[in-house]
Design a protein around this nucleic acid. Sequence first.
DNA 1: TTGTAGGCGTTATCAA
DNA 2: TTGATAACGCCTACAA
Lengths: 336, 336
Amino acid sequence: MNSTIKDVARKANVSIATVSRILNNKTGFSEKTKKKVLRVIEELGYQPNALARGLINKNTQTIGVLIPTVSNMFASEILSGIEKHANDLGYSVIVCNTGSIGKRTIDYLQVLSEKRVDGVIIVSEFIYDDYHKILNDMDIPVVLVSTISLEFPIPYVKVDDRHAAFTATNYLIKKGHTKIAMIAGDAKDPLAGKPRIEGFKSALLSSGLQINEDYIIDCQTFSHEDGIKAMEEILQKQLDITAIFASSDELAVGAMSVAYRNGIKIPDQLSIIGYDNTKLAEMIIPSLTTVAQPLFDMGVVAATMLFEIKETGEVIQSRIMSHEIVERETVRSYFS
Amino acid sequence: MNSTIKDVARKANVSIATVSRILNNKTGFSEKTKKKVLRVIEELGYQPNALARGLINKNTQTIGVLIPTVSNMFASEILSGIEKHANDLGYSVIVCNTGSIGKRTIDYLQVLSEKRVDGVIIVSEFIYDDYHKILNDMDIPVVLVSTISLEFPIPYVKVDDRHAAFTATNYLIKKGHTKIAMIAGDAKDPLAGKPRIEGFKSALLSSGLQINEDYIIDCQTFSHEDGIKAMEEILQKQLDITAIFASSDELAVGAMSVAYRNGIKIPDQLSIIGYDNTKLAEMIIPSLTTVAQPLFDMGVVAATMLFEIKETGEVIQSRIMSHEIVERETVRSYFS
DNA sequence: TTGTAGGCGTTATCAA
DNA sequence: TTGATAACGCCTACAA
C-alpha cells in the first residue's frame, strides 16, 4: 500500500530515473521498458506522491480561495465557478471560510503560504495592509473577486457597482416610478455599499428627481434578516414610495416578506428590484426582478486570470463584468 | 523571500536541528537560543514548508470533501460545518465538486490520493466499487454525510430518512389532512428517494389511510425546477388533495410557485411541508414548514468523526442525527 | 544543550 | 536508452 517510485523501479528492473521519465512523458526510454514499467505501476497501484513532487517542482497544483461564507448563494456560486475552472486545469482548491471576523484571514493566509499554494483568489474582502504583506511575501498570483483594492495593485474581476445600481434605479424610473427608496446594505462598506448608493443617487439626479437621505435605509449587512428590519423601518417611517431598490437579493426578499405580512401587494402596490441574481431571485414568489452579476462566470474568469498570470508572469488587466437587468415579476410599470 | 530552515540556522548560528526543535516545541535548547532563533525567524519572515513537513511526517493537515454541488444551500451548509471544524483543528479542506457525473469522482479521488490528504468526507453520493477500491488503497479515514453504503462498512452521519418522512407525513395527518400527495424527488435514488417514499407510505398506512401510487410524483432530481414540473403534473392530473409532502425544500418551493400562479392559496387551499430546512425555507413567502436536518451540525459531526478515527485508529459508530419539524406558515390545521 | 547525518519520494543533471 | 546521485526542505535518531 502506497508504494514508491523505488518499488516500481526495483520490480521493473530499471532505475528510478527511468520510471520518473516515463511518468512525466520525457524522452529517453524504449517502448519496451515503458510497457514493462507501466504494467508494474498498474500492478502495484502506484500513485506518485504530490508532496515530493511539489517539493522539487515548486508547485502544488492547488490554489486557495478566501471567501466570507460558502453557505450563501452569492459566494457559493462564485466558488463553484472557480472550482470548475481550476479543476479543468488540474488544480485543486482549498476553501477558506473567513467569516466576518478579520483575524481568521491572516491565519488562513499563513496556512496557504506554508502549504505553498500556487495562487490565491479572494472574494468579497477588503485587503488590509497585513494581508497584502503576506500575499506579497508569498510571491504568487492573486486575484480579487467582487472586491477591489485601492491601495494595492491587485487585479480584480467585478461588476461596476455604481453603474449597476444606476441601471437598476433607472429601470425603476423608466417604468414610471418617482418615489423610490433604497435598502442600501452596509452603507459604510466602501466596496459593495457606497458605490451602489452613489449609483442610486445619480440615477435619481439625472432624471431630475429629488434625493432624500431618509429614503436610503442603512443596514449592517446584506442579509435577509436586515432586509426585514429595513422594510419595517420603511413602514414605520411611513415613507411615501412606489418602489424599492435593494442592494442584494436577500435584502429584497426580506423586504418582500414584510410587505406580504402587511398586506402590501407586490408589484401592484410596491415594486422592488434586487441585486445579484442568485437562485433565490428566481425561486422566490413572486420571482424577483434584479440586476444580475454573472456570479459563476466571475469565478471562472478569476481562475482564468490567475492561471494566466502564473503562466505569463505578467500583470493582467482587471475585468469589469457586464451586468444586466433580469426582468421578472416584482416591478410594475406605470405605463401601457 | 521563502527562506528555509537552513537560512534561519545559519543566520542564528545554530544547527538546523536546533531550529527544528524550537519550531516544534520539542525539548533540548536553552531559553536564550530560542529567543535568538525566534528573532531570526521573525526577521527572515520564515515559513516552514508544509510539503517537506508532510513528506516526512506523513500527514498533510488537509482533508478532501467530495460534494455534488457547492452552489446549493443544502450542500453548502454541510460544507460550511465541515470547514469550520476542520479549520478549528488546524486542517485545510480541499473541495471537490463532483457534479452529477460519476467520472469526475474517480479523478478527484485520484488527486486526493496523490496529494496524500489525511481523510475524506463524501457528501450525498453513492459509493461505487471503484470508489471504495481507491479509498481503501488510500488507507485513511472516510466518513459519509447524508448518504450510506450498504456494501461497504463506512461510517456515516445522516438523519433517518424514512423516519423523518414518516414524521412529516404524520404531522400533516395530525393536522387533519387525509388527502396527501408526495413530490418524491428521485424515486430511484436508494438513499434520499426510496426511504422517504417508504416513510410517507407507512405514515399513511399507520393512520389507516389509503396509498395511491398516482399521488406519488416521481421526479428526476430534488431541484426547484422539478418541483415546478411535479406541481404541474399534480394540477393536470387534478389530484384531489389538501396537502403535499415534498422531499426537499427546493421541490416544495417550486411547487408553491406553481400553486401561486394558479391562484391556489397556501396554506388555505393547499398545505405543503418540505424537507431539509435550508435557509430557503425561512426566506420563502409564506415561510415553509419543513422537517429539519441539522445540516451545519452534520458537517461538524462528520469532521469530528473523521479526526476521531484518525486519532484512535478505531472504527467509529455512525451517527443518526435527529430531525424535527419546524413549524412555519405553509401548513393549515383542520382543527381548532 | 547542541550538531551531524540519513531519509522522506521525487526530479534533474550528469555520465555511461 | 539508461543509471547514479545530488538536490528539494524538513525531522529525528544518534553522537558529542
